[in-house]
């Protein structure tokens, strides 16, 4: 049974077909990496999944429910967590409050005019922060954190609605190589223990091949290959895309 099923997804900007009939599926608890050169349509694809863009065609089903065209906040309500390529957190709130926000949104909503929101779900938020290793920074303002720490906060926030699926747009972008491996290792451990499926885009091939269960490759808006890391590594078309036809030809001869 697939957690996410994408069928014939397409989007054009002006005359440019950014994504052209992409289909793939994501099994429960699976880590799927989406790779491809710049301009391959990864971001467009991603933004259609998370609700930022409305697809021209195609369907996106999460646990059987259609997502295409839903606003990001509705996508989240269905149980999909999300991290941004450039982190987005609430700078005027503490790390703990940022996670509390996710929990409040998931469990009660924000229409209350009375009572102290800061007192809600503190333990749960602290537990999530402990899991991502941010306990010591819980009371600091998000506006003053180092970038790598912000990525961890985002991960904790993304987990706050008990998601069945995490969408991570370049989760390690802007980080030092050692930090990247550490963060992706942490992410992989958490999602495996909770059975969360993950779709992530990534430029760092070390990260991709170390953690992905499966890889899909996009080029010029179309899906050109998919399979296990080993299969993708050996795929001739993938080599051609990444190394250029001359290099592929040279390798063959």
């Amino acid at each position: 049974m697939s957690t996410l099923e994408v069928q014939g997804l397409a989007k054009a900007f002006g005359g440019v077909q950014a994504v052209d009939g992409v289909s793939f599926a994501l099994a429960e608890g699976e880590l799927l990496a989406m790779i491809g050169p710049n301009g391959a349509g990864k971001s467009t694809c991603f933004n259609m999944l998370n609700g930022q863009l409305r697809p021209d065609e195609g369907s996106i089903r999460f646990r059987g429910r259609e997502l295409a065209g839903l606003a990001p906040r509705r996508v989240w309500r269905l149980g999909i967590g999300r991290t941004f390529q450039i982190t987005a957190t609430f700078a005027s709130m503490t790390v703990l409050e940022n996670v509390q926000m996710g929990l409040i949104s998931h469990r009660r909503g924000f229409s209350g005019l009375l009572g102290r929101a800061g007192a809600l779900y503190r333990e749960e938020a602290a537990a999530l922060l402990a899991r991502v290793g941010m306990t010591e920074q819980a009371e600091r303002a998000c506006g003053v954190l180092a970038y790598g720490d912000l990525k961890r906060v985002e991960l904790a926030v993304a987990l706050s609605n008990d998601p069945g699926l995490l969408l991570m747009d370049e989760p390690t972008a802007g980080m030092a190589p050692a930090e990247r491996v550490e963060l992706m290792g942490l992410t992989a451990a958490i999602v495996r223990e909770r059975g969360i499926a993950v779709l992530f885009t990534e430029h760092d091939m070390d990260v991709v091949f170390a953690h992905a269960d499966r890889i899909i490759v996009l080029n010029r808006g179309a899906l050109v290959a998919q399979g296990s890391p080993a299969e993708v590594r050996d795929d001739a078309r993938v080599r051609e895309i990444y190394l250029g036809s001359a290099a592929a030809g040279a390798g063959a001869s």
Binding site: N50, T89, A91, S92, H106, A117
Partner: peptide, 26 residues
Amino acid sequence: GTIFARFGYAIRAGRDSPLRADAIGI
């Protein structure tokens, strides 16, 4: 009081980062 209640947190969230606020269902 409203500023420290859930409603106040939600509007601050919208000011700080509309993108993130939307992404957590606000």
